[in-house]
Design a protein around this nucleic acid. Sequence first.
RNA 1: CGGGGCGUGGCGCAGCCUGGUAGCGCACCUGCCUUGGGAGCAGGUGGUCGGCCGUUCAAAUCGGCUCGCCCCGACCA
Length: 568
Amino acid sequence: MRQSELLAPTLREDPAEAEVASHRLLVRAGMIRQVARGIYDFLPLGLRAVRRVEAIVRDEMDRAGAQEILMPAVIPAELWQESGRWEHYGRELLRLKDRYERDFCFGPTHEEVVTDLVRREVRSYRELPKNLYQIQVKFRDEIRPRFGLMRGREFLMKDAYSFHADVADAQREYRVMYDAYTRIFERCGLTFRAVEAGSGTIGGSQTHEFQVLAASGEDAIVSCARCGYAANVEKAAAPALAPPAAASGALERVATPGKRTIEEVSGFLGLPPERFIKTLLYQVAGGAVIAVLVRGDHAASETKIQAALGGEAVTLADERTVERVTGAPVGFAGPVGLDVRILADASLRGVRGAVAGANADDAHLVNVDQARDLPAAAFADLRQARAGDHCPRCEGGVYEEHRGIEVGQVFYLGTRYSQAMGATFLGADGASRPIEMGCYGIGITRTVAAAIEQHHDGAGIVWPAPLAPYAAHVVPVSTADAALRETAERIGRELTAAGVDALLDDRDERPGVKFKDADLIGLPVRVTVGPRALARGCVELKPRAATEAAEVPVAEAASRIVALVGPR
RNA sequence: CGGGGCGUGGCGCAGCCUGGUAGCGCACCUGCCUUGGGAGCAGGUGGUCGGCCGUUCAAAUCGGCUCGCCCCGACCA
């Protein structure tokens, strides 16, 4: 491809709105442009990277026995009403009306549509199992889209759904998909972890997330180097810590004027946050309000809270609810005397001498003694794990913490959708049963962003070769010099013949401009065709990640590049 | 949803406080010159200052409304 003809408008300055590397570099390298909040154009180079990820995903999904289909993006409301999610999915679901005022939504995920397809077409256990996938545009009306392609509202997703006659077969397929995902992200050239996770809104009981490790990741995960256990901090088993040593004393109310956060009260009273009981009020889906207690320096895990409630969804109570339940402004909630169900993290069992809100304006309680003052609390592991926690799965292991970008997730769904929507089959015994299901997603466009987050430097993108929009960048230092121009053209032709896609910078620009753009675009190998080396019959090869270029004879250039990046 | 910020040529910004004929850098066009890390000189093109309403002799500038975008928060107790 001739760069002079390519729509790849590179920018000399960082776009004002971009914060993270992938967003900044995708825009600067002329690969994406924003159209609306969380919605982007993909320009030729950006789209080619997307297509690379898609190709790897298709290849591995097909190899794993899945079949590609394409479902509609616009979905009639009836299907979502059947599953119950029309009411429960919330404002993330983009709802539409057609000209007859009928309700539709733009699909954020496709369990309903695929379950409807399968219930109409599959009758017998003889037709199972099936694994159907698609690569398609999804829309989720995120509260706060950000970071370019990392959390867009519109994005490309590969979603697969499998259907089985029994649990054992669904779990076999789960493993097949887990292995396929592992190969996919390995082939993409990414450093990632498959971690245990909570199941979120899709529902289901078993799930792993595939997290690309990057400092800018929005998720926190812990792993144990000793036994290999890895999980999202929301899910990872967190050991109950012994309460800090403290003498028991009479419950006492102290004035804490204007001190709302644990940090503020901790500083004011001169007691460390470990001595605090953090009281979080949650609204349960059924309508009840509960109090969740964790130690002051711990973070509550909504995943674990939901699990402790038998799967009921919870959201943090709003300000009005907190005031109604505690009788005090936000910042002074405490468990003592609170007339709601209390769930406490196991690290609070037997705690003494603790500080908690007094459920009164500008006041806290000190010397809270769990056994004496909170006898009704139910204990469970409710907190997020963190670095330094002892791994409960093995002897002597300690958690390390990483940031991750969730690029894929595999779920065992069970019969949640098949039961709600009447997707049944006849078994060999003639009995009708709901179909066992699994679902498996990969954020295609997010994977592109994650690859850049993990692979860039101060000058631009450093594409993992399998995802690069082109494998090689042929850069004649000057197009005014016929010998340089012709040598560059020749190498370009030889690369094409060898099955390597190359971008030829035939623009009449000064060398500095071309080099800066080449670094920004980040193709794996740059072939510099300049007068110095050419006088010796050579050109320079410089892998994008390397600091030094190597001189090779013109005649060998193409084969050397093939050796570096392979045919594609 | 709450809080904050910003909308001025393709990009990045100044001008606004204190109203009076819209400016800078880059990009773009023409010419000369130059060609190994975002050259130089000269001459150009391009903006109803997000939109609407108002105040005023006069509005990018002041007021109101509205739209868009960005950031922070929503794990705060």
